[in-house]
């Protein structure tokens, strides 16, 4: 392990976009509603792929690499919808995933929010046709609070999107 620690010291701090920390701490001060305040210091996300190409998932996984280091902002992905504040939905909402998607939402404790990620969950931006196998438009079936667009959105765009969602919480 000595090799590892040498490397760690040599690498120093790799995290980029450190301005997000500042945005978040200002945000925490500015937020008025108690729910928003609570979420701003710890947002638990459950991601559900409703029929994606897996690139959106790949970028969400990249959020935990040392360059983006999302968890330092108090935002983390959790293993169960029952632990989650936010359901992050990617993909086109296929016929076969649709019931499971609704199920996952039903399992979440309130207050709960849905965020869609990528161009797929909106039929008009998706490259997929509105085919027989696709139910489509997640917003028609779940109360979507925020959308992070892009195909796929880059890890930094995802972080910005999540912070925007937090900001928006105060208004709602």
């Amino acid at each position: 392990m000595i090799k590892f620690w040498k490397k760690r010291i040599q690498n120093k701090l790799l995290t980029e976009h450190l301005t997000h920390d500042k945005t978040l701490s200002t945000l925490q001060k500015e937020l008025k509603s108690s729910i928003a305040k609570q979420f701003a210091s710890s947002l638990n996300i459950r991601m559900v792929d409703s029929g994606s190409c897996n690139a959106c998932e790949s970028e969400c996984n990249a959020l935990s690499n040392p360059y983006y280091n999302l968890e330092r902002l108090g935002i983390q992905f959790v293993a169960s919808p029952r632990h989650a504040d936010v359901l992050l939905v990617s993909g086109v909402n296929t016929f076969n995933m649709h019931p499971h998607l609704l199920d996952a939402y039903a399992q979440m404790p309130s207050p709960k929010y849905v965020i869609t990620i990528g161009d797929c969950p909106l039929t008009e931006t998706s490259v997929y046709e509105d085919s027989f196998a696709i139910v489509g438009d997640v917003a028609k079936h779940l109360p979507v609070a925020h959308h992070i667009s892009g195909c796929p959105p880059s890890p930094d765009e995802i972080i910005v999107g999540l912070l925007e969602f937090l900001k928006g919480l105060d208004k709602s």
Binding site: D49, G51, C53, N54, T94, F95, N96, V127, Y128, E129
Partner: peptide, 26 residues
């Protein structure tokens, strides 16, 4: 994740397929 992709491709020209086939499996 069945999206009916093979069916979606039918009746299309080859050039029209690049955006879709780029996004079958990221």
């Amino acid at each position: 994740k069945y999206r009916g992709i093979e069916k979606m491709c039918e009746g299309k020209s080859l050039d029209a397929l690049f955006p879709l086939l780029s996004r079958v499996s990221g």
